[in-house]
Design a protein around this nucleic acid. Sequence first.
DNA 1: CGTTCCCTTGAAATATTTCAATTATAGTGG
DNA 2: CCACTATAATTGAAATATTTCAAGGGAACG
Lengths: 279, 279
Amino acid sequence: MSISFADNRSAPTSSHSSAEAGRQRAGHLWSSLADVCNLLQIAPGSAAADRDIVFQHVQFKAGQRIFTIGQPFDMLYIVNSGFLKTVLLDDAGNEQVLGFPMKGDLLGTDGIHQKKYASEAVALSSCDIVMVPFKMLTSLSRRYPEMEMALYSAISRELVREQIMLNMLGSLSAEARVARFLMSLSERFSAMGYSGKEFNLRMTRQDIGSYLGLTLETVSRTMSAFDRLGYIGVDGRAVILKEAQTLRTLRRLPPSKAKAKKVIVEPSDIEMADKELAA
Amino acid sequence: MSISFADNRSAPTSSHSSAEAGRQRAGHLWSSLADVCNLLQIAPGSAAADRDIVFQHVQFKAGQRIFTIGQPFDMLYIVNSGFLKTVLLDDAGNEQVLGFPMKGDLLGTDGIHQKKYASEAVALSSCDIVMVPFKMLTSLSRRYPEMEMALYSAISRELVREQIMLNMLGSLSAEARVARFLMSLSERFSAMGYSGKEFNLRMTRQDIGSYLGLTLETVSRTMSAFDRLGYIGVDGRAVILKEAQTLRTLRRLPPSKAKAKKVIVEPSDIEMADKELAA
DNA sequence: CGTTCCCTTGAAATATTTCAATTATAGTGG
DNA sequence: CCACTATAATTGAAATATTTCAAGGGAACG
């Protein structure tokens, strides 16, 4: 039996639907510059007025690749709807998951450096993607300073996101990684207008494990443990968050056999007083 | 030990004391735009002719911070000489090392997004740093298209570097991480004209461990093991690489009891990720 | 309706950390 | 310049987190 609730694949409750941002034309969707700014959460500034420039959309089905490693770079992609993963491939062809882009995320920036994409993006569901020629973006940058900053800002944000992942992989336990992963998804769903409390995972345990530097078994066991402790409800890919605050600050699990149901948390929100803990 | 370049070492302060983000007094060195392009390994194009623009240098001593987390962003920094580490700080004030920048590396790009630096850079030795106002760079971008691409490219490269680190942390054993770390340093030293075979580590075992997601003891033990196996020579911070090819492709150590000196290596390809492992 | 992929769970193997003790090394100030 | 103190590095032994191996059940899909 499965937990069932509204699928976050359906339209968000938000009043602001950018699905209508796209213009139907010749069977394809197109977005204006204003639409794109909106999607990226940029103040469009004077660029919004530019009605001449439109960007084409492309649809992908689950499993399809938006771009692949080594492919010549000339295009950036913005997710309009759907869920994806970005991956690196090692010599044996094994995937290393780098991230799970969704609505509003910018893809392909790692291709700028070598003029070839350094990673590949795979659709995990049906996806609607806006294609933005990089040349176009740089020429727009010259015309509209807001666009220039937006582009730098978007790339810089990606950089910061990866730094945070490095920190996570370098210093947190398996449980803490899984907990933060769930909270991160929750927050992103919320920001998109979906429920941050109940959602479906779009990726396999394998994908999550790769992303978090863990085996799929460890991910599965950890989620089961969270379920047993009442922090979440899990049934396959359906997740219900029950103790968000606990998950947010969790460092490791409480001793299973022993006494307390108490959890070790960070001294974060309170203050940063004692440092005798610090090595 | 025979080491190919100058001394170093004054104890890198273990975190805190970020109070005075040590911007020493202004140095007396200045660089032209052509100098900067040269440092960054950019084809200067027509920009080289611009003799009006000069960039100021600043000197830092070991332990001083070039910029700190949360500090308002307005400047990028290019390393002209010296060695640094970039770090993230968690709630308890513990450092997470993100990279070890050296000559030619661009610092501070993670500040673009939030207009505040997201990490901090700490000098591990005496350093000479070129200051480049971000505004200046973007205005130059408008004038010289080469500069624009150079900037995007530099940030994109950083992104790729971090992706490779994520892959490493997510999938390699402790031994493989240390081996690749050493090879990466070696290649960077070589590229700078120093010996890639004999060099001094500028950072502590703690720093290396943090960077690689390992404890300092594991780093120490692993290097000792490499030494015992004849792959390297280690004496404190002095390192001599003896079996570069072995280190480059090492996956895990050969069984200690057993006879074999043979090492398990990757099935195919040997380069790709090794190229730019570290900052 | 079968085939394939995905998820869960246990038990054993093992890699890495933790704790602890000892020896180096560098910086400080008499 | 040397002694002194603090920080850094090494190493062993024990503790433990995570992976590996293995098997069974479930969901998805053509």
